[in-house]
Nucleic acid binder design. Structure first.
Length: 104
DNA sequence: GTTGTGACACATT
DNA sequence: AAATGTGCCACAA
């Protein structure tokens, strides 16, 4: 409910060409322990058109095992299309593409 | 109302 | 270093 909305807001705030971890989203949502809840929230994904769940990855910078809304490859393709580079292990360059919410 | 599960993260072994 | 176990919160049965 309210918790989910908070998560969705954060996920929708993820800028183009960047990714965020579940823990990061949870923390930005105001609850660093909602990592699992964030995953579940995206699982239901009531508004996939406004909730780029493919921009949300686990702490490894890699799509979750159950993250397949058409194939894990699908997610990597979408992120690559946004300019995100993947390593041979299928991990994202966190230091470069992880969404760092810095104030400006 | 209680028990179990889950798209995670962290600590310990 | 990797693998395993535990903790966390919300939802389904």
């Amino acid at each position: 409910m309210n918790s989910y909305e908070r998560i969705y807001e954060v996920v929708k705030e993820i800028p183009y060409g960047q990714v965020a971890t579940y823990g990061q989203v949870a923390a930005l949502a105001g609850n660093p322990r909602w990592a699992r809840v964030v995953g579940y929230a995206l699982h239901v994904n009531p508004d996939p058109e406004h909730i780029p769940c493919y921009r949300v990855v686990n702490r490894e910078g890699r799509p979750s095992d159950a993250f397949a809304f058409g194939g894990v490859n699908r997610q990597i393709g979408l992120l690559e299309a946004e300019g995100v580079r993947f390593t041979e292990e299928g991990c994202v360059d966190m230091e470069q593409f992880q969404w760092k919410k810095r104030l400006l």
